[in-house]
């Protein structure tokens, strides 16, 4: 394990009955890094979080979280991690404030400290106006905010977010993502984000781990993963109309071009490197083809994810 790694797993495997929920997971998360665990339902994301927090014991393999073994030092791990579970985990019969104070008391804060800290966090997450209301009547977005306050009240070194935007409307999703982006940037906090919403992973994560039926299919930076799947850099050419045959032929002949396909607004060209773009555009201008734009467009997380998942099927 590297000195700077916050999470390290080696062949982590667990089964529920005959079914392997996680099969030989080996990966490492650096301190201060934001990593997305991606995969469909049943891929093993939540199981990974539960194993790393010592809720489950693996059948095989091992893990270290901040240097602690979750199996033998579970409380030491949990003291340093904060988890926002998919279901928020709030007791509907308690108020927002009581829900946060309860966790603070369990984490050793005095009643006074717990109340002050809880109020501060609810204020910070924009839910202070409902602090004394029972959670029963809260929207999913408001519940997520209270759950985030609970996960963060002890300033954890690692934050586990399990489907943080599940069930949210687009506006609430944007609000929560803004909040998470801020949190991820704070104090170099390590964040493990489990999600099947690829947009949020693309926005927040530095590396992504793609799980499929309990197995790790790919792990790395989106650019690196894309480079393993596709050759070259895709470039969107805006020509004002689909490229004609003459233009496509010229593009395919140009130096550094791997392939060229027409699109509704022009053409998509795969080039070996970004440096191939300026001469390409110059060539088109010389041919009197109008060029309104040439934008290198790396594949989105979504495109990378589906390419990996299709390969796994």
């Amino acid at each position: 394990m590297d000195v700077g790694s916050a999470v390290h797993t080696e062949d982590l495997t667990v089964s529920f009955g005959a079914e392997k929920a996680l099969d030989g997971l080996t990966f490492e998360v650096d301190a201060g890094e934001v990593v997305a665990l991606l995969g469909p339902n049943g891929a093993g994301k939540t199981t990974t979080v539960r194993l790393l927090n010592g809720l489950l014991s693996p059948d095989r393999g091992s893990s270290r979280v901040l240097g602690f073994d979750p199996v033998t030092d579970g409380d030491d791990v949990r003291r340093r991690t904060g988890v926002m579970t998919e279901q928020s985990g709030l007791d509907e019969r308690l108020t927002a404030l009581e829900n946060v104070v309860f966790i603070a008391r369990m984490r050793g804060l005095s009643a006074e400290q717990a109340t002050t800290q809880a109020r501060n966090l609810l204020e910070r997450f924009g839910i202070a106006h409902r602090a004394n209301d029972r959670v029963q009547g809260f929207s999913t977005g408001q519940r997520k905010r209270v759950a985030l306050a609970r996960a963060l009240l002890h300033e954890p070194d690692i934050l586990f977010l399990d489907e943080p935007t599940a069930g949210l409307d687009p506006e609430a999703t944007r609000d929560v993502l803004d909040l998470l982006a801020t949190l991820a940037a704070e104090h170099g906090r390590t964040v493990l984000l489990c999600t099947h919403f690829l947009g949020e992973a693309g926005r927040l994560c530095q590396r992504m781990a793609v799980l499929h039926r309990g197995r790790l299919r790919a792990f790395g930076r989106p650019d690196d993963l894309a480079a393993r799947i596709w050759r070259g850099v895709p470039v969107e050419l805006d020509l004002g109309a689909p490229a004609d045959e003459r233009t496509l032929a010229a593009l395919r002949r140009a130096r550094g071009v791997i392939s060229a396909q027409p699109t509704p607004s022009g053409a998509r060209v795969d080039v070996e490197e970004r440096a191939a773009v300026p001469p390409l555009v110059a060539n088109l201008v010389q041919m009197e083809v109008p060029v309104f734009g040439a934008v290198p467009r790396p594949p989105t997380v979504e495109e990378i994810y589906f390419a990996i998942q299709e390969g796994a099927e």
Partner: peptide, 14 residues
């Protein structure tokens, strides 16, 4: 039933 068990288990309580 209330789905509050998991968040309870995530606390550092033996």
């Amino acid at each position: 039933e209330r789905k509050t068990l998991e968040s309870l288990l995530h606390q550092p309580v033996p």
